[in-house]
């Protein structure tokens, strides 16, 4: 089945379910080839209502995050399932309110980990957040989201957390040479292999918005997320820019010009891009509905 057909099939499934919870379609590209794709749901109230009925989410909430999820300033932002290495994975991610103070976020982090028994990961979260804040001279603590990925039995496989790059200054940062250097320095990573692509993405009007980290007891993987700077009417005219970027970054084998055109006709555009910092050849492309399309579906 072609990529487009698979995407159309996935979108159709969501439409049939009538949940209107489609948020993103994510394509993982490695060495210029498609290795997986996934549809991300937006946790509308309806989805949240159903969460309690579904395993393993019910188990997760009951067993680990009851106190955390009920705390003020916390809400579920992402629930999704995927197939990884032949195994079903369940993801549950919470957002921390941007207006929370550093101390409040620290308290919530404690609640999050209190039943998980993963003190080393908890420490790593604090360390990563502090490193990023220091490297970019941030005035706020950048922890934005935190969650887990589990197997079907609700066993934690990975802790996921997201560090915000936009909160402190009120301005979105541009990804320039200095930004790449600071980011590499924060996590002690050599970003030279992907620096050119990162700068190309920035030149196509994408701005870095956060760093997402997957961590288990042994490994960690960091992704830098970009979001399109286009808004309102501008999003109707992003297709040529997407075409140019896909060509420059060598993703044409995954998403051809024809695919981009067909997706655009369906109201989807390349809203987000993520770079795996530890792997220069791995990228994730996120397609979302154009604002007017999304509105017309609501």
């Amino acid at each position: 089945m072609s990529l487009l057909k698979r995407i159309q099939s996935s979108l159709l499934t969501f439409g049939q379910q009538g949940k209107d919870s489609f948020e993103y379609l994510g394509l993982t590209v490695r060495k210029g080839e498609l290795v997986s794709y996934k549809v991300y749901e937006n946790p509308t109230p309806r989805v949240e209502a159903e969460l309690g009925k579904q395993l393993p989410y019910r188990m997760l909430l009951d067993k680990y995050f009851g106190r955390f999820a009920a705390a003020s300033g916390v809400r579920i932002c992402d629930v999704s399932e995927s197939l990884l290495d032949g195994e079903d994975r369940y993801r549950l991610v919470f957002t921390l309110d941007r207006r929370l103070s550093h101390r409040e976020k620290e308290q919530l982090l404690t609640y999050f980990f209190e039943n998980l028994e993963l003190p080393e990961i908890c420490a790593a979260v604090r360390q990563d957040a502090a490193a990023l804040a220091q490297s970019f001279d941030m005035g706020v603590w950048p922890l934005q989201q935190i969650g887990v990925e589990t197997d079907v039995h609700a066993a934690i496989r990975v802790v996921k957390y997201y560090l915000d790059l936009t909160q402190d200054s009120g301005r979105r940062r541009a990804c320039d040479r200095d930004f790449v250097d600071r980011l590499g320095s924060a996590f002690a990573l050599n970003l030279e292999p992907q620096a050119r692509s990162l700068l190309q993405i920035a030149q196509h009007r994408y701005r870095p918005v956060f760093v997402g980290i997957n961590r288990d007891t042994e490994n960690s993987e960091r992704k830098l997320y970009f979001k399109s700077d286009a808004f309102g009417r501008q999003t109707e005219h992003v297709l040529p820019m997407s075409e140019s970027l896909v060509e420059l970054c060598g993703w044409e084998r995954v998403v051809t010009k024809a695919d981009l055109g067909a997706l655009h006709k369906q109201g989807l555009y390349l809203e987000g891009i993520a770079s795996t910092l530890e792997r220069a050849d791995e990228w994730r492309l996120y397609f979302a509905y154009l604002p007017r399309w999304r509105h017309s579906r609501v």
Binding site: N42, D78, V93, V209, F210, Y225
Partner: peptide, 13 residues
């Protein structure tokens, strides 16, 4: 038009 958006990725006033 003044356009504000808030999503799982960003909050953009």
């Amino acid at each position: 038009q003044l356009n504000a958006t808030k999503g799982s990725w960003t909050s953009e006033p």
